[in-house]
Simulated scan of single mutants.
Amino acid sequence: MRRSEFDRAVEREFGARSATLVSDLGLPGVGGRTAREALAEGIAPRDVWMALCVEMDVPVSHRHGAGRREPHARR
């Protein structure tokens, strides 16, 4: 997962709450850091996304492949 995919996944899953969650919620899965802190310290976006999903009880069906863009239709 790229950082841009992380950002899209968070926005799609949490909407208006996304900025607050990323900056304020401590995530045990990344040592109690916020998502913003974890990313700044070089923790992989995929690991941060999964920690956020666990903490927020995101359904497993929403976790994998999140943030990816829809493929362009071939002509």
Rank of each mutant, 00 (worst) to 15 (best):
V60Y: 12
T34G: 07
R36A: 11
P59I: 10
R63H: 07
V10A: 09
S61D: 10
R36F: 05
R74N: 02
E5S: 06
D24L: 14
A40T: 09
A19I: 08
V48N: 03
S4P: 08
R75I: 01
T20P: 06
V58E: 05
E13Y: 05
A40P: 03
D57N: 15
T34Y: 01
M56R: 10
R68S: 11
W49A: 00
S18G: 14
G42M: 07
F6Q: 04
R36H: 09
F14N: 12
E5K: 00
V30D: 02
H64A: 08
H64T: 12
D24A: 15
G67A: 04
G67W: 03
E41A: 13
R69M: 06
R69A: 09
F14V: 03
M56V: 05
D7M: 13
V48L: 07
A51T: 04
E41D: 12
L25G: 05
M56F: 08
V30Q: 08
S61N: 09
V30L: 03
S61E: 14
R8G: 08
R33C: 05
E11A: 12
A73T: 08
E37S: 10
M56Y: 03
G26T: 10
W49S: 00
A51S: 12
L52S: 02
S23H: 15
R3N: 09
A40S: 10
R8Y: 06
V48S: 03
E13K: 05
V48Q: 01
E13R: 10
P71L: 04
G15N: 05
P45L: 03
R46E: 13
S18I: 12
E70F: 14
A35R: 02
L39W: 03
I43M: 09
L39I: 01
H72A: 14
A51V: 02
M50V: 13
S61G: 07
R2N: 14
T34N: 08
A19M: 14
A16W: 09
I43V: 13
H64M: 10
E55F: 00
E37K: 10
C53Q: 02
A40H: 06
H62I: 04
V58L: 06
R3H: 13
A35P: 04
P71E: 01
G15P: 03
E5L: 02
A73W: 07
G29T: 05
A35M: 07
R63C: 11
R75D: 00
D24F: 14
R2Y: 08
E5R: 01
M56L: 13
R17S: 14
A9Y: 03
S18A: 15
R12S: 11
R36C: 02
V48T: 02
V30S: 05
E11T: 12
L52A: 05
F6H: 08
V48E: 04
G42E: 07
R46S: 13
A73C: 08
R74Y: 03
A38I: 00
V58T: 13
A51I: 04
A73V: 11
V58I: 13
E37Q: 14
H62M: 11
S4V: 11
A44I: 00
F6N: 02
S4D: 15
V48K: 01
G29S: 07
H64F: 15
G32Y: 02
V60S: 13
R69C: 03
H72G: 09
F14K: 06
